[in-house]
């Protein structure tokens, strides 16, 4: 297989970090402009390399990869039923092991609907058995492929076509990494495409661990979240800077590491205001969301302190 070598950016701009030269996601995919999930796939495959098998259930990526006979990835991709990403990946892993291809990373790549909702049962089963697969949820916080319907990952108060008056819930969305960590799997992490160095480091780390690995990518969706498509990376960054989406690692379900603690967190309001989906959020609910986001971050800091004995070691800068 021929591999493109593109290192002009590094050479010309003297970047401090390069995600990797090998492009395993080709141009010609059919994602929307500014799709966070596409940026995420590009980075993930740069980290994992060409010996990766991808399993995609029903989700935006069912379409993004391109219609038959097109295929945007330079690695094999198997399309599977909505609720089966974790277990179809398990089956492929079993077959590859029998074929002696132990070095291959089998990656399930699912949306939030296929993870938080319809796929949770098979996901829990695979996690509980500690199957040797990497499960990635690119979380765009609603059923975006079908046109923006509420999922179990839709934040409080967010507009969707099935929550025209704002998602009715009074607590933060389902804590998917907490659920996976409770299975005591070897590795659980959150990543953001706005922090590519952290992103690639975690995918490489996950690649080199055996057993069940779970990574949540917050994946901004311009049409679903109602923001201009050139703002994907800045909005992904804002989610982290406002503590809405903390970057963490959870190992063996016990050791928690907070990877980034902004010296001065940005106001949650900045994140909410940047998106049309929160336009009609009542003030009382805004306050409640702020409170719960801070509370969750405090819980994570406490878990970090329990693991590390201190929270002084948490970086205050990250890229």
């Amino acid at each position: 297989m021929s591999v493109k070598t593109v290192n002009t950016t590094q050479r010309h701009y003297g970047l401090l970090f390069h995600a990797g030269e090998q492009e395993l996601l080709e141009p010609g995919h059919v994602a929307c402009q500014g799709c966070g999930a596409t940026l995420a796939m590009r980075l993930a495959l740069k980290a994992l390399g060409p010996r990766t098998a991808v399993v995609v259930p029903a989700c935006c990526w069912t379409v993004i990869d391109g219609p038959f006979p097109q295929h945007a990835l330079r690695v094999p991709l198997f399309h599977t039923a909505f609720e089966t990403a974790a277990i179809a990946a398990t089956g492929i892993r079993a077959a590859l092991s029998i074929r002696g291809e132990e070095d291959v990373t089998v990656m399930a790549w699912a949306g939030d609907g296929g993870t938080y909702d319809i796929g949770l049962q098979a996901l829990s089963g695979a996690a509980e058995r500690n199957e040797d697969v990497l499960y990635v949820v690119y979380d765009n916080e609603a059923y975006m492929n079908t046109g923006i319907q509420r999922s179990g990952a839709t934040p409080v108060g967010a507009w969707t076509t099935t929550t025209p008056d704002g998602a009715r819930r009074h607590v933060l969305k389902k804590d998917i990494v907490g659920i996976l960590a409770a299975h005591r799997v070897p590795y659980v992490a959150t990543v953001s495409p706005a922090f590519p160095e952290d992103f690639v480091r975690k995918f490489k780390k996950a690649r080199d661990i055996r057993g069940f690995r779970f990574i949540q990518v917050l994946s901004p969706c311009p049409p679903g979240w109602k923001f201009p498509s050139e703002k994907t990376v800045s909005l992904a960054r804002l989610a982290v800077e406002t503590l809405v989406f903390p970057l963490v690692e959870m190992e063996d379900g016990r050791r928690v590491t907070v990877n980034y603690r902004p010296a001065r967190p940005r106001p949650v309001e900045d994140y909410l205001q940047a998106q049309g989906r929160f336009r009609n959020l009542p003030e009382a609910l805004r306050e409640e969301i702020r409170r719960q986001i801070l509370e969750r971050f405090e819980d994570l800091l406490e878990a970090h302190r329990k693991t590390h004995g201190t929270d002084e070691n948490i970086p205050t800068t990250l890229r």
């Binding site: 399993v55 198997f78 599977t80 089966t84 179809a88 089956g91 492929i92 892993r93 074929r99």
Partner: peptide, 10 residues
Amino acid sequence: AACIGAAVGG
């Protein structure tokens, strides 16, 4: 689904 995955794996 596991059989499907394994069969795809050959």
